[in-house]
Simulated assay, not measured.
Amino acid sequence: MTNKNKELSVEQREELLTSLKVRFEKNIDRHLGIEWSKVLAKLESNKEKLWSLNEMERTGGEPDVVGHEEEEGEYIFYDCSKESPKGRRSVCYDREALESRKKHKPENNAIDMADAMGIELLTEEQYRELQKIGIFDTKTSSWVKTPDTIRKHGGAIFCDRRYDTVFMYHNGAESYYAARGFRGSLRV
């Protein structure tokens, strides 16, 4: 279902830009001091990044601007869906974990999906930043980028929000649950 050319049709592009603008204006507190016209200009000059944002949108991530790196001139988008993106749940952490399962393999894994979409998994730090601008994952959880020191022992980490507190946990990287997906970030 993904476009190998990583280009959107005119209709897809317009639909995405409209959705992003509406979300941007509705959630202005996520990006105080950032002007939509400047974000739009950056998006229009980055077709491949626009494609990645469309993939975030298509899988239920509801991407939105959460910051601006002035030095790099980049706008930072995170998945801002209330719960972990629906189209990215029931996945284990990475390919190694997927291949290690003998039975009941999930269809995919978070790392490969993010890579195919052209995005990065949020780190624990980024996940905690996201939780400062809203309340996310109160019923779901999200895999986050796992340090090699944990991954080499077979584990992976995920985060969620319960009791008005952000928690970081661990699981075997091969585990997967209907309520666990992953959130991504994209710099444009």
Score class of each variant (00 low, 15 high):
residue 13 R to N: 03
residue 72 E to Y: 06
residue 183 R to L: 09
residue 165 T to V: 14
residue 142 S to H: 01
residue 17 L to M: 11
residue 59 T to A: 08
residue 86 K to R: 13
residue 93 Y to C: 05
residue 137 D to Q: 09
residue 97 A to Q: 00
residue 44 E to F: 06
residue 142 S to C: 07
residue 92 C to S: 01
residue 22 V to M: 11
residue 125 E to Y: 11
residue 61 G to S: 06
residue 97 A to R: 00
residue 93 Y to D: 03
residue 123 T to H: 04
residue 156 A to K: 01
residue 38 K to T: 14
residue 117 M to Y: 03
residue 187 R to V: 05
residue 88 R to D: 01
residue 112 D to C: 04
residue 84 S to Y: 00
residue 184 G to Y: 00
residue 107 E to C: 10
residue 60 G to V: 02
residue 135 I to H: 13
residue 68 H to F: 15
residue 48 E to D: 10
residue 12 Q to G: 04
residue 37 S to W: 06
residue 120 E to V: 04
residue 164 D to Q: 12
residue 119 I to S: 01
residue 153 H to K: 11
residue 139 K to W: 09
residue 92 C to K: 00
residue 35 E to P: 05
residue 85 P to Y: 00
residue 162 R to D: 13
residue 140 T to F: 02
residue 18 T to K: 14
residue 48 E to V: 15
residue 91 V to C: 07
residue 133 I to Q: 05
residue 31 H to D: 04
residue 129 E to R: 13
residue 137 D to Y: 02
residue 122 L to I: 04
residue 162 R to S: 15
residue 186 L to Q: 01
residue 61 G to A: 10
residue 70 E to F: 07
residue 52 S to Y: 00
residue 94 D to S: 03
residue 68 H to W: 12
residue 176 Y to E: 02
residue 188 V to L: 14
residue 74 E to W: 02
residue 169 Y to A: 10
residue 90 S to P: 05
residue 13 R to T: 12
residue 152 K to N: 11
residue 123 T to P: 10
residue 177 Y to H: 14
residue 48 E to M: 11
residue 83 E to F: 05
residue 34 I to C: 09
residue 41 A to H: 08
residue 53 L to E: 00
residue 136 F to A: 08
residue 124 E to K: 09
residue 117 M to N: 05
residue 110 A to H: 01
residue 161 R to I: 11
residue 89 R to A: 02
residue 133 I to E: 02
residue 145 K to W: 09
residue 54 N to P: 13
residue 101 R to L: 15
residue 76 I to Y: 01
residue 54 N to D: 08
residue 62 E to V: 10
residue 93 Y to L: 06
residue 45 S to N: 15
residue 126 Q to P: 13
residue 131 Q to N: 15
residue 136 F to Q: 07
residue 171 N to Y: 03
residue 70 E to P: 09
residue 88 R to L: 12
residue 73 G to F: 00
residue 40 L to A: 07
residue 37 S to Q: 13
residue 181 G to N: 00
residue 120 E to L: 10
residue 4 K to W: 09
residue 1 M to V: 11
residue 168 M to H: 07
residue 111 I to N: 03
residue 18 T to Q: 13
residue 130 L to S: 03
residue 52 S to K: 00
residue 52 S to G: 05
residue 176 Y to H: 04
residue 152 K to D: 13
residue 70 E to A: 08
residue 142 S to N: 04
residue 170 H to N: 13
residue 178 A to H: 10
residue 137 D to S: 11
residue 129 E to I: 09
residue 148 D to T: 15
residue 23 R to F: 12
residue 51 W to P: 04
residue 155 G to R: 03
residue 170 H to W: 14
residue 13 R to H: 05
residue 138 T to S: 12
residue 150 I to D: 14
residue 168 M to S: 15
residue 13 R to G: 07
residue 13 R to I: 02
residue 125 E to P: 10
residue 157 I to N: 11
residue 134 G to I: 08
residue 152 K to P: 02
residue 76 I to G: 03
residue 162 R to P: 06
residue 59 T to N: 12
residue 130 L to T: 02
residue 82 K to W: 08
residue 16 L to E: 02
residue 158 F to V: 06
residue 120 E to K: 11
residue 119 I to R: 00
residue 41 A to L: 14
residue 42 K to W: 04
residue 163 Y to P: 01
residue 127 Y to E: 12
residue 48 E to T: 14
residue 30 R to Y: 14
residue 116 A to P: 01
residue 159 C to M: 10
residue 25 E to Y: 04
residue 165 T to P: 06
residue 173 A to G: 09
residue 23 R to H: 15
residue 47 K to Q: 15
